[in-house]
Deep mutational scan, measured.
Amino acid sequence: KFGRVHERAEGPAKILAIGTATPFHWVDQSSYPDYYFRVTNSDHLVDLKEKFRRICNRTMISKRHMFLTEEILQKNPNLCSHNEPSFDVRQDILVSEIPKLGKEAVLMAIDEWAQPKSKITHLVFCTRSGVDMPGADYQLIKLLGLSPSVQRVMMYQQGCFAGGTMLRLAKDLAENNKGARVLVVCAESSAIGFRGPSEDHPDNLIAQALFGDGAAALIIGSDPKMGLERPIFEIVTTAQTFVPNGDCHLALHLREMGLTFHCTKDVPPTIAKNVESCLIKAFEPLGISDWNSIFWILHPGGNAIVDQVESTLGLEPNKLQATRNILREYGNLSSACVLFILDEIRKKSGREGLKTSGDGLDLGVLLSFGPGLTIETVVLR
């Protein structure tokens, strides 16, 4: 008597548009150690500064975009301390800036989509910054002038794996609601975790050397309108798992001094060791076991992770080039990073006149991972 209210779509979910945005301000990685130790009044920690310089040199990052300028840091000195309470200051900045950054990426996506924004039916927003109620999803709806009846899902504090999570959720929403057009937004800022150095917490140096700011937005829907919408990728399958006891290797915690970062040297080999089982589960039903026969979007948690995944799986050097390019130009953008790589690989395919948006290949994989050593596996066509 009370059956399904919403009719299912006929076809699989497809990515119809991609937009990205970054803050205008950026830092050069080669000179960042001098800048970082100067603005945090830590130049007296000579040995720690040299250690940080070595870490920065190993990241293979060229530059990173950041909202925090020297002027902002001078006005808010607690942000430059390692342990002073600064959460309220971070909140005041990020509750406002995260939706604005997301808006810039959304406008780029809508411009490519070339359809009225009134056709957006759902919003899925993800960030690890600016936790608030009502959330960044609500603020973004107002900034864009979208209908208050847009169906919203707000996900805070997920971390680097969440780019894949957003695709998984959007696929379910698009395929189970005929005519749905799902706006996916990942907006991230390193301002939540920026803090001064400490000899007692070397993990913090890794975070300060890796993370950048950026937002990515996608429009996802099934059954694209012929002649009006141009699909870029099809989302074939999605899956999530985590490595048992992985939280002892990688975890982040909200504290009075901001978001703290805990990471062990076992993260790269542990991820590399567990990736292939995810690939087998995803691609065995499709008859694929040659990992060089697919295109790759791999989250660059750090250069060591990229190198070890490449080595463990025997990947050809060009397979992870898009990942390395984004890491070099932006650093680790947390949940937004794989979506930047997705954009990079389709643009490169277009520039080179390849037959598909995925490096000329039919199928590919998007792998994202993060806290708890959670792994998201997304098969794309």
Results as ranks from 00 to 15, higher is better:
residue 8 R to L: 12
residue 51 K to E: 11
residue 266 D to P: 12
residue 341 I to K: 11
residue 234 E to L: 02
residue 117 K to M: 08
residue 5 V to E: 13
residue 106 V to R: 04
residue 277 S to L: 05
residue 139 Q to P: 14
residue 281 K to H: 03
residue 301 G to V: 14
residue 101 L to G: 06
residue 21 A to C: 04
residue 368 S to K: 05
residue 323 T to P: 05
residue 44 H to E: 09
residue 300 P to S: 07
residue 300 P to D: 09
residue 374 T to R: 10
residue 351 R to P: 00
residue 74 Q to S: 03
residue 344 E to M: 10
residue 72 I to E: 00
residue 376 E to D: 14
residue 241 T to R: 07
residue 49 K to V: 05
residue 262 H to V: 13
residue 376 E to G: 01
residue 134 P to Y: 12
residue 125 F to E: 02
residue 236 V to C: 07
residue 314 G to T: 02
residue 81 S to W: 10
residue 116 P to W: 04
residue 365 V to P: 15
residue 32 Y to L: 12
residue 363 L to M: 08
residue 231 P to L: 02
residue 65 H to Y: 06
residue 343 D to P: 00
residue 144 L to E: 02
residue 252 L to H: 15
residue 276 E to C: 07
residue 99 P to S: 14
residue 8 R to I: 03
residue 29 Q to G: 06
residue 129 S to M: 15
residue 309 V to A: 03
residue 250 L to T: 15
residue 271 I to R: 07
residue 291 W to T: 07
residue 111 D to L: 04
residue 26 W to T: 04
residue 291 W to R: 06
residue 344 E to Q: 02
residue 96 S to F: 00
residue 101 L to Q: 06
residue 283 F to M: 04
residue 315 L to W: 01
residue 123 L to W: 07
residue 231 P to W: 02
residue 286 L to T: 13
residue 136 A to G: 11
residue 290 D to T: 00
residue 111 D to G: 08
residue 129 S to P: 14
residue 88 D to M: 14
residue 23 P to L: 04
residue 55 I to C: 13
residue 264 T to L: 14
residue 324 R to W: 03
residue 301 G to N: 00
residue 239 A to N: 00
residue 137 D to K: 12
residue 333 L to F: 02
residue 115 Q to S: 03
residue 66 M to E: 01
residue 317 P to E: 07
residue 358 G to A: 09
residue 121 T to A: 00
residue 330 Y to C: 06
residue 368 S to W: 02
residue 40 T to V: 07
residue 298 L to R: 04
residue 9 A to N: 02
residue 371 P to G: 09
residue 272 A to I: 09
residue 67 F to Y: 14
residue 305 I to R: 06
residue 345 I to W: 05
residue 253 H to W: 12
residue 299 H to G: 14
residue 241 T to S: 12
residue 51 K to F: 01
residue 357 S to T: 12
residue 276 E to M: 12
residue 22 T to L: 05
residue 102 G to W: 08
residue 238 T to V: 09
residue 358 G to P: 10
residue 265 K to S: 05
residue 52 F to Y: 12
residue 97 E to N: 01
residue 40 T to G: 08
residue 124 V to F: 01
residue 354 L to E: 03
residue 287 G to P: 01
residue 276 E to H: 05
residue 41 N to K: 14
residue 228 L to M: 15
residue 285 P to H: 06
residue 289 S to H: 11
residue 344 E to L: 04
residue 45 L to R: 06
residue 45 L to M: 14
residue 63 K to I: 11
residue 55 I to N: 15
residue 120 I to E: 01
residue 316 E to G: 05
residue 298 L to P: 07
residue 323 T to V: 07
residue 309 V to W: 04
residue 293 S to L: 06
residue 62 S to N: 08
residue 331 G to W: 01
residue 6 H to N: 09
residue 141 I to A: 12
residue 53 R to T: 12
residue 350 G to W: 01
residue 255 R to P: 11
residue 21 A to H: 00
residue 130 G to D: 11
residue 308 Q to A: 13
residue 257 M to K: 15
residue 311 S to C: 11
residue 234 E to D: 09
residue 92 D to C: 04
residue 45 L to V: 04
residue 91 Q to D: 11
residue 2 F to G: 07
residue 243 V to A: 11
residue 251 A to T: 10
residue 232 I to Y: 01
residue 98 I to V: 05
residue 88 D to R: 11
residue 71 E to Q: 03
residue 271 I to C: 01
residue 267 V to Q: 13
residue 112 E to D: 11
residue 63 K to Y: 05
residue 270 T to E: 09
residue 122 H to T: 07
residue 9 A to H: 01
residue 74 Q to I: 02
residue 7 E to C: 09
residue 265 K to G: 12
residue 58 R to W: 01
residue 267 V to P: 10
residue 61 I to S: 03
residue 379 V to C: 12
residue 268 P to T: 12
residue 42 S to N: 06
residue 238 T to W: 05
residue 330 Y to K: 15
residue 8 R to C: 12
residue 286 L to I: 00
residue 80 C to R: 12
residue 52 F to H: 02
residue 304 A to W: 03
residue 364 G to V: 00
residue 322 A to L: 08
residue 374 T to H: 12
residue 352 E to S: 10
residue 39 V to G: 12
residue 60 M to F: 00
residue 338 V to R: 12
residue 338 V to N: 05
residue 72 I to T: 07
residue 102 G to R: 13
residue 58 R to E: 15
residue 20 T to S: 05
residue 53 R to N: 10
residue 245 N to Y: 08
residue 85 P to G: 12
residue 270 T to W: 13
residue 289 S to D: 13
residue 13 A to P: 02
residue 75 K to D: 06
residue 341 I to V: 08
residue 380 L to H: 14
residue 291 W to D: 00
residue 308 Q to G: 06
residue 136 A to S: 10
residue 121 T to L: 05
residue 337 C to H: 15
residue 284 E to S: 03
residue 37 F to V: 13
residue 361 L to C: 13
residue 2 F to L: 05
residue 330 Y to Q: 04
residue 149 S to A: 02
residue 97 E to G: 07
residue 146 L to T: 03
residue 284 E to N: 13
residue 132 D to R: 09
residue 354 L to H: 15
residue 91 Q to E: 07
residue 379 V to P: 15
residue 115 Q to C: 03
residue 88 D to V: 07
residue 136 A to C: 12
residue 313 L to H: 00
residue 83 N to T: 09
residue 81 S to A: 10
residue 130 G to A: 12
residue 339 L to F: 13
residue 17 A to C: 02
residue 369 F to G: 15
residue 319 K to G: 02
